[in-house]
């Protein structure tokens, strides 16, 4: 599993690889939780690539509802159909017709369930939806079927591999958590972060990647408002490569800190720490 993901340029640790392996074996969804920018979304994408499966993504936001997540009738098309056939067909024919597949707008959840080909379903940032929508998700992840009043019940032909991600801005329901395997993804260990930099930033030297990972680790130990994430590490590595830096000294680090840190107070604090004499 780890090797497979590495081939897709995703560096997993033992925990990540283990849980993905189990999810595949047990046919259970994975709830991936952790700070922003630690590779949660990327994990689902990379797993899909590894399996040669199609990725279906449901991006969650506040206000997401059934019609955007599951399905919706195409009213416009239905109206046109009714208009066009005003004279000829009987109402019941029209009715049957306009509530058929042709007029159904399939949204990601339904699409994942009805797929014939192998798919990976990514429900991204699930902590942003309201409780009611969360209940809908839970229902689908438990039954893998959808009932559409006008069409009847549609049952999944296969159980797709499902990833839900959460930045943990709110507690998800116990029921949803019980249904899922739980995976907490944190900032990577030094060696893994170095490897990530090397795979994602092709022009970086190993020596540079090593220094970058070490400095980032050091910064994460400070009491910052927002610690640098993996994506920020990558951005920083790219910046340094562009600047042609071979060896990072305190001055260069300070001048580029804004790529790594988002808050002014954090930048000031980090700049101070990086050039301070080591504490005994």
């Amino acid at each position: 599993m780890r090797e497979g993901l590495r081939a897709e340029n995703y560096l997993a640790d033992e925990g990540i690889a283990g849980v993905v392996f189990l999810a595949d074996r047990l046919g259970k969804p994975v709830l991936v939780e952790g700070p922003a920018g630690t590779g949660k979304t990327q994990l689902a994408k990379s797993v899909a690539e590894m399996l040669g499966a199609r990725l279906i993504r449901l991006q969650c936001y506040e206000g997401l509802d059934e019609s955007k997540a599951l399905y919706e009738w195409n009213y416009k098309k239905q109206l046109l159909r009714i208009q066009a056939d005003k004279s000829s067909d009987s109402w019941s024919d029209v009715h049957d017709d306009i509530f058929s597949d042709e007029f159904l707008l399939t949204r990601p959840l339904l699409e994942a369930i009805t797929a014939d080909d192998p798919v990976v379903l990514l429900i991204d940032e699930v902590d942003r939806v309201e409780v009611e929508t969360e209940a809908l998700l839970l229902e689908i992840l438990s039954e893998y079927q959808v009932s559409i009043p006008e069409l009847g019940t549609i049952t999944a032909k296969q159980i797709p591999l499902v990833f839900l991600t959460s930045n943990n801005t709110r507690e998800l329901s116990e029921a949803l958590k019980r249904r899922c395997l739980f995976l907490h993804v944190d900032y990577p260990e030094l060696e893994r972060e170095k490897q990530i930099v090397m795979t994602r930033v092709p022009d970086v030297t190993e020596n540079m990647a090593d220094q970058i990972a070490r400095i980032v680790r050091s910064l994460r130990q400070l009491d910052l408002k927002k610690a640098p994430s993996v994506s920020e590490t990558i951005d920083w590595a790219r910046t340094l490569v562009l600047l042609g830096v071979q060896n990072i000294d305190a001055q260069q680090a300070k001048e580029t800190l804004h790529v790594l840190l988002k808050y002014q107070t954090d930048i000031a604090k980090a700049a101070k720490e990086l050039s301070a004499e080591a504490k005994k």
């Binding site: 033992e14 925990g15 283990g18 189990l22 939780e33 116990e174 958590k177 019980r178 899922c180 739980f182």
Partner: peptide
């Protein structure tokens, strides 16, 4: 380790 992660993923849902 795999054993540990299997138990963790199924039984511990809060980091």
């Amino acid at each position: 380790d795999a054993f540990k992660y299997a138990l963790g993923a199924t039984m511990v849902k809060n980091n």
